[in-house]
Amino acid sequence: MADINEARATFSRYDADGDGQVTPDEFKRAMAEMGDPFVTGPVAEAVIKSKDANSDGTMSFDEFWQALQG
């Protein structure tokens, strides 16, 4: 089980504008900053979609936390 404080810190690295939602563009940019330049737009969209439980096109912290639990 992941530590929620570490998860919040990681989530904040993805959530560039601090609005509580991670968009595919934010995810792609964060992955590039963390050393993975191979995450393309379609890959980022697929990752966000796979974690987007309410189908709003973004990943909230709750959705991120839930994905870590599985």
Rank of each mutant, 00 (worst) to 15 (best):
Met34Ile: 11
Gln69His: 00
Gly41Thr: 13
Phe38Pro: 15
Met31Cys: 10
Gln69Tyr: 00
Phe61Tyr: 11
Thr10Lys: 09
Met34His: 11
Ala67Phe: 00
Val39Asp: 09
Ala67Trp: 00
Ala53Phe: 04
Ala16Tyr: 09
Phe64Trp: 07
Gln66Trp: 07
Ala67Pro: 01
Asp25Phe: 12
Tyr14Asn: 04
Ala16Gly: 08
Ala16Trp: 07
Asp17Val: 09
Ala67Leu: 02
Phe38Asn: 15
Gly41Leu: 12
Glu63Ala: 00
Pro42Ala: 08
Asp15Pro: 04
Glu45Asp: 06
Lys49Gly: 05
Asp56Ser: 03
Phe11Asn: 00
Phe61Met: 05
Asp62Pro: 11
Thr10Tyr: 06
Ser60His: 01
Ala67Gly: 02
Thr58Lys: 11
Met1Gln: 13
Thr40Ala: 15
Gly41Ser: 14
Asp25Tyr: 13
Ala7Ser: 08
Arg13Thr: 08
Ser50Asp: 05
Asn5Thr: 14
Ile4Tyr: 08
Val39Cys: 15
Ala30Phe: 02
Asp15Gly: 02
Thr23Phe: 08
Ile4Glu: 14
Arg29Asn: 12
Leu68Met: 06
Glu33Ser: 11
Thr10Gly: 10
Ser12Gln: 13
Met59Ala: 08
Ser50Pro: 02
Gly57Glu: 04
Ala46Phe: 05
Pro37His: 15
Trp65His: 10
Glu33Val: 02
Thr23Trp: 04
Pro42Asn: 09
Asp62Phe: 05
Ser50Cys: 03
Val43Met: 11
Lys28Gln: 13
Asp62Asn: 11
Pro24Val: 05
Val39Asn: 12
Pro24Cys: 09
Ala9Val: 10
Leu68Gln: 06
Gly41Gln: 13
Ser12Asp: 12
Ala30Gln: 06
Phe11Met: 04
Asp36Arg: 14
Ala67Glu: 01
Met31Trp: 06
Arg8Val: 10
Leu68Asn: 05
Asp19Lys: 12
Asp36Tyr: 15
Ala2Lys: 12
Met34Gln: 13
Met59Leu: 05
Gln21Asp: 15
Asp36Ile: 14
Trp65Asn: 07
Thr23Lys: 02
Gly20Met: 02
Phe61Ala: 08
Pro24Leu: 08
Glu26Ser: 00
Gly70Asp: 07
Val22Gln: 00
Gln66Tyr: 06
Met1Gly: 14
Asn54Met: 03
Asp56Pro: 00
Phe27Ser: 03
Glu45Ile: 03
Asp19Ser: 03
Asp52Phe: 01
Trp65Tyr: 13
Lys28Cys: 08
Asp62Leu: 09
Lys49Trp: 06
Thr10Glu: 07
Met31Phe: 04
Met31Pro: 11
Thr58Tyr: 07
Lys28Pro: 11
Gln69Val: 00
Tyr14Gly: 00
Met1Cys: 07
Asp56Gly: 06
Glu6Ser: 14
Ile4Cys: 12
Arg13Cys: 08
Gly18Met: 04
Phe27Ala: 09
Glu63Tyr: 01
Ser60Met: 01
Pro37Ala: 15
Asp3Gly: 09
Gln66Ser: 11
Ile4Arg: 14
Ala2Trp: 10
Asp56Tyr: 01
Gln21Tyr: 15
Met1Asp: 12
Thr10Trp: 05
Met31Gln: 11
Phe11Gln: 01
Ile4Pro: 13
Arg29Leu: 10
Lys51Met: 11
Pro42Trp: 04
Arg13Gly: 06
Lys49Leu: 04
Glu45Trp: 06
Lys28Ile: 04
Asp52Arg: 03
Asp56Ile: 01
Ala7Gly: 09
Arg8Phe: 10
Asn5Cys: 15
Phe64Val: 06
